[in-house]
Amino acid sequence: MTPDLIYGLCGIAVFGIGLVGALCAQDRLRRVLALKLCSVGAGFLLVVGAWREPPAAPDPVPHALVITGIVVMVSATAVALALIRRLQTLEADDER
């Protein structure tokens, strides 16, 4: 059992959980969070792919890709959350 096997399966499990949440969750905030879980799962797989048995150094290119992915994900999350806030306000105004 090496870390890449353990965390690779862990990443796939997290991705699957996020996928179920994104498709089956009923409220918006939870769906956004589920998509974030998917992105973490994908990040796990990339980091696992970059891992080399120590003392060999890991592959830096996937690491850079995951860092880029994290920043893109926070941008997407911020826009999604702004849409949720706006939508919720509009719905509350309609009810009044």
């Binding site: 870390p3 890449d4 965390y7 862990c10 997290v14 974030k36 973490v40 990040g43 796990f44 980091v47 696992v48 970059a50 891992w51 120590p54 150094a57 890991p58 690491h63 995951v66 860092i67 994290i70 920043v71 994900m73 926070v74």
Partner: peptide, 21 residues
């Protein structure tokens, strides 16, 4: 998750995930 990425010798990714993600 950040801790797991430290175990996979990816401290840069772990820092980004902890701070931004």
């Amino acid at each position: 998750s950040a801790l797991a990425w430290v175990r996979l010798s990816a401290p840069d990714v772990a820092l980004a995930e902890a701070a931004i993600g």
